[in-house]
Amino acid sequence: MNARITFAVARRVLIQLRRDRRTLAMLIVLPCVIMTLLWWMFTDRPGPGFSALAPALLALIPFIVMFLVTSVTTLRERTSGTLERLLAMPMGKGDFLLGYAIAFGVVAAIQSALAVAVSTWFLDLNVAGPVWVLMVVAVADAVLGSALGLFVSAFAQTEFQAVQFMPALVIPQILLCGLFVHRDELPGFLHGVSDVLPLSYAVDAMNAVTGSTDPAVLGDLSVIVGFALAALVLGALTLRRRTA
């Protein structure tokens, strides 16, 4: 591992994103629009609709968006030959992976800061705990999404195949994370399944921060980080210097 190379990768990924206006809009503006839409849906209804769902959405968005962007970006890197070229250079696999994680972590931090700002200032979301914890969880979520996206890109030949992993890996997690049915109220088996899905912990952590002045999120956060690290290790295994 080498800091110069790691930061060169991160910087290059950020320059690529900056040049791609449409993706940048999707990364930065879309989350705010979705939060606003959710708020709007509930404006004519009594009860805490928006406040109950917003924390889960703040956990889901960075995960989904980063999963998509990373799986397509790294697939491109695999098919265009740039990955082969980099691996023939003095670049460690860790430099490559960490570079991507840093770049998308930075984007996730900006993305979540904006979504949280819009939600708390304009949409009356009450965050009882410290707002920065909300952002730490969002960044961990985004890194998790990136790591998984990077891993699945090894199993896709085209960008079209890569985006198809999204519904397969992400929608079950959305259904079971507690957004629709409280996890405690799920049938026993499904509750067990939701216990091994990382997004459940992200949503739990977000709910804790918005609901309590002194939230205990360290446990949830370590699970998310653990999953992210495991996915990065799996991702590293798919980066082969020698191929058939």
């Binding site: 190379i5 320059i15 690529q16 040049r19 030959g81 082969e84 250079m89 003095p90």
Partner: peptide, 24 residues
């Protein structure tokens, strides 16, 4: 490589500067 392996969405200079910092 036979197919040019550079980043399409970077400028020529940005491509070279990136690989230059990888190589040191």
């Amino acid at each position: 490589t036979q197919a040019p392996s550079v980043y399409d969405d970077l400028t020529v200079a940005e491509n070279l500067e990136f690989f230059a910092s990888v190589l040191g």
